[in-house]
C-alpha cells in the first residue's frame, strides 16, 4: 500500500518534470541534445519504474504505533524549530533548548537533560568558534 502511494506520487512527479523540461526556453543551442533531453529521458525511466511499482508493490510491514508517530513528528518539528532558531536565537540558546528536548525524547530525566545540554552548547560554542574557527551564529542576545 505504501509502495503504491509513493509510486503514484513519483508518477505525478515524473509527469511534472517532463512537462517542465519540455517547456524550458532555450535561446541558443550548439549541440544536438540540449538541456531538455536528459531530464526527459530520466522522467520517462521514472514513469516506467513507478508504473511497475504500482503493478507490483512490495509488502511493507511498517506500522508505527501512535506513540512512535508522535515521537517521529516531534523529532521533525524539533529539527525544524532548530533551523528556525539557529540564526535568530544563536547557537548557544537554540542548541541548549533543542538538545534538552532530544535528551528527554531519548528517555533522560529533565534535570540531567538540561544540565547536559547547557554544558554541551556552551562548551561546543567555544570549541567550534574559537578552536575550529567555524561560522557559528552568536545570536541577537549576544549582539550577533
Amino acid at each position: 500500500m505504501f509502495d503504491r502511494l509513493f509510486a503514484g506520487a513519483l508518477l505525478g512527479l515524473s509527469g511534472l518534470i517532463a512537462w517542465t523540461a519540455y517547456h524550458f526556453e532555450v535561446a541558443f543551442q550548439y549541440e544536438p541534445l540540449g538541456p531538455k533531453a536528459f531530464p526527459l529521458i530520466l522522467s520517462a525511466v521514472l514513469a516506467v519504474c513507478s508504473v511497475w511499482l504500482i503493478i507490483k508493490p512490495s509488502a511493507n510491514k511498517w506500522a508505527p504505533t501512535g506513540a512512535v508517530l508522535v515521537k517521529l513528528i516531534s523529532g521533525v518539528l524539533l529539527m525544524t524549530g532548530y533551523a528556525f532558531l539557529f540564526e535568530k536565537a544563536g547557537f548557544i540558546i537554540s542548541t541548549a533548548i533543542v538538545g534538552t528536548v532530544f535528551c528527554v525524547l531519548f528517555g533522560e530525566q529533565t534535570k540531567r537533560a538540561v544540565l547536559y545540554s547547557v554544558t554541551l552548547s556552551v562548551v561546543s560554542y567555544f570549541v567550534l568558534k574559537h578552536v575550529l574557527q567555524l561560522n557559528v551564529p552568536t545570536g541577537m542576545l549576544f549582539g550577533g
Binding site: 539557529f86 547557537f91 538538545g99 535528551c103 533522560e108 545540554s117 554541551l120
Partner: peptide, 13 residues
Amino acid sequence: SYLVPIIVMLTFI
C-alpha cells in the same frame, strides 16, 4: 540521549 544532541548539533553547524 547524550549522543543524539551531539549528532544534530554537528550536522546543523
